[in-house]
Design a protein around this nucleic acid. Structure first.
Lengths: 329, 329
DNA sequence: TTTCAGCACTATTTTCATTTGAGTGCTAAA
DNA sequence: TTTAGCACTCAAATGAAAATAGTGCTGAAA
């Protein structure tokens, strides 16, 4: 069991360490705890025994362990009000009418990255909820055209098509009409099947250039499913003292530049979730706080990557604020 | 004046330093130069006097100075053939039919970044050569629609428009028709004027929602002019031994993350240009090799950022190869 | 005149020992 | 249960010494 006083002590140590990044010694807390350093040491000893604190070496001050942070996050920390300054900066982005939703998310996360000095990640993906609304082809010259696909949620994808030899515009029109007839109303991720089993056989018979046309539409539709990965403020997390050595920085940068690694931090859970150190699969020295968003048939994850001694209270408040604002839209 | 032998010596020193990143001592070159270290030292001394070599401290080996690299690049280095392996890797990207030109450039540069361990940058911009080919609006629901703009070069830009209150589809059609009539054939960078002085006055009179509509199109057109900035393989340049300290790495990363700084490495000259150390405005410790490309009415810059002891011969060959292949398309 | 062996010299890097400082654990008394 | 006091420990800073890798210069040989 953890007594009230021990909890208070843990809170002080965690918060002090978050601020200073230096192991916390017993003397430093005498004033606040209103007792001698020896007493504090005894309590620290206990907290270490049950795994909430650690020493960096035998005679050093204490540092929260992963379990310690976890305890802090689960039992001690209280949600805070968003501070006025942070709110103001975010609100100017969130209110900006001329930005697409997607850009609003991106910009907000950039701001958060600056405010907190952590790195932010936005993973976006067109969800299967998108239904094809309209397919269109616009001729450019005698060998080129642009295919445009619009979904019912207002997402647009386009693809240039190069047709060797002359384009037979009647055939193109025929194909597009067919696609419109068969595919409009289909969800984005079933399109490829419809395209292959219904469209392909028909145009295979009647359309000379069916090979090229089919491929163009096929890739245009698959681009819709593509995931977007945006990392911003990599430099910020590197300013943290825990990353004070060249090799460690290189490692972290490499991870941020690896699309597969970054994509894998996708969140499934709907709340705001915290993964401390080894709890995340990214890096044992960081904490990742993430949450899912769904808007306009597009779903994704926003995440903050910082040192384990993250300003948990503030960050959660910030992320929560953004999430609520996105969900409102 | 620089004698034949001195030039040979400079070449050896530059190339050795490029490979090892260690100051080159006189002994190391005896075998190749077929003379004693004392003789080499005398020559080195001369090369230092005329500013082509430097010492890192009084008793160290020699390192090429900026002027030394410049001399090497201008007078000594010979263009090389592309090596088979490099060519193969690039060719598979360049031949890939399913990629848009833009992606081909991006992918090629990613490959080059990996091959060379330098960082690559692609700056793209829609050029004013693009003429508006077609403007279209696709309705989504009663408050939303998507505006799509296509240029004669096949570039597409789209923008969601939210109209508070009910959309009067007749009015929208009227507006779009007007825009099509007045703007098709105009170049991208004169569009905003036409929009303001010709379109705005007319729709201001007849269209209820003219404010929102005008703004939507206005931003859609200005998005066309937006520059794209892509940096890839930041981690690669950080592996170079010259960036072996945390603060230096942070500085470099910060520069790569700063859009304004990166944009400013835009190239005007049509050839392949080399900016060594203080010759570039990016960072005194790096060399930037860049070249302009123009394709399909889109122009941009591709650039390689590496340490001053760059593998000049190889890099120039690689960049030249890419440039020729892009220009062919 | 050019080359070069030999030597004195020098700055960096590495190693090792010493000191300093911050903090701990334990104990015995309040 | 608390705490003053003390012995102890490790990391970090400081400093001295040795090892290393080079240089510049000189005077003799080619």
């Amino acid at each position: 069991m953890v007594s009230k006083r021990q909890e208070e002590l843990l809170k002080l140590i965690v918060e002090d360490y978050i601020k200073t990044a230096r192991p916390v010694g017993s003397k430093a807390l005498c004033d606040i705890m209103k007792c001698s350093s020896a007493t504090i040491r005894a309590e620290m000893n206990y907290l270490e025994e049950i795994g909430l604190l650690e020493k960096t070496h035998i005679s050093s001050g204490r540092v929260p362990s992963e379990k310690g942070y976890r305890y802090y996050v689960d039992n001690i920390m209280k949600p805070k009000e968003l501070n006025g300054e942070d709110m103001l900066k975010l609100q100017t982005i969130l209110d900006n009418k001329s930005l697409v939703v997607n850009d609003i998310i991106l910009k907000s996360m950039e701001i958060i990255s600056e405010l907190t000095h952590y790195t932010t990640i936005v993973l976006g993906k067109q969800s299967s909820e998108n239904l094809v609304q309209k397919v269109e082809v616009i001729p450019i010259d005698k060998n080129n055209m642009v295919a445009i696909i619009v979904t019912d949620k207002g997402h647009v994808e386009n693809k240039s098509i190069y047709i060797p030899g002359d384009i037979d515009s009647a055939e193109i029109k025929q194909t597009v009409d067919l696609i419109n007839k068969l595919i409009v109303g289909t969800s984005i991720d079933t399109v490829s099947e419809v395209l292959e089993y219904q469209v392909k056989p028909i145009i295979g018979k009647y359309v000379k250039q069916h090979e090229v046309l089919y491929n163009a539409f096929y890739t245009a539709f698959s681009d819709f499913a593509a995931e977007s990965v945006r990392v911003s403020g990599t430099k910020n997390i590197l300013m943290q003292p825990e990353f004070n050595n060249a090799d460690r920085i290189r490692e972290i940068i490499s991870k941020f530049e690896d699309k597969d690694i970054v994509s894998s931090i996708k969140e499934e859970d709907n709340g705001i979730n915290i993964y401390i150190g080894s709890e995340n699969n990214f890096d044992d020295d960081v904490t990742i706080i993430k949450t899912k968003y769904t808007i306009n048939g597009e779903e994704g994850t926003i995440a903050l990557v910082g040192p384990k001694r993250m300003e948990y209270e503030r960050v959660i408040t910030l992320l929560d604020y953004i999430k609520k604002n996105i969900d409102k839209k």
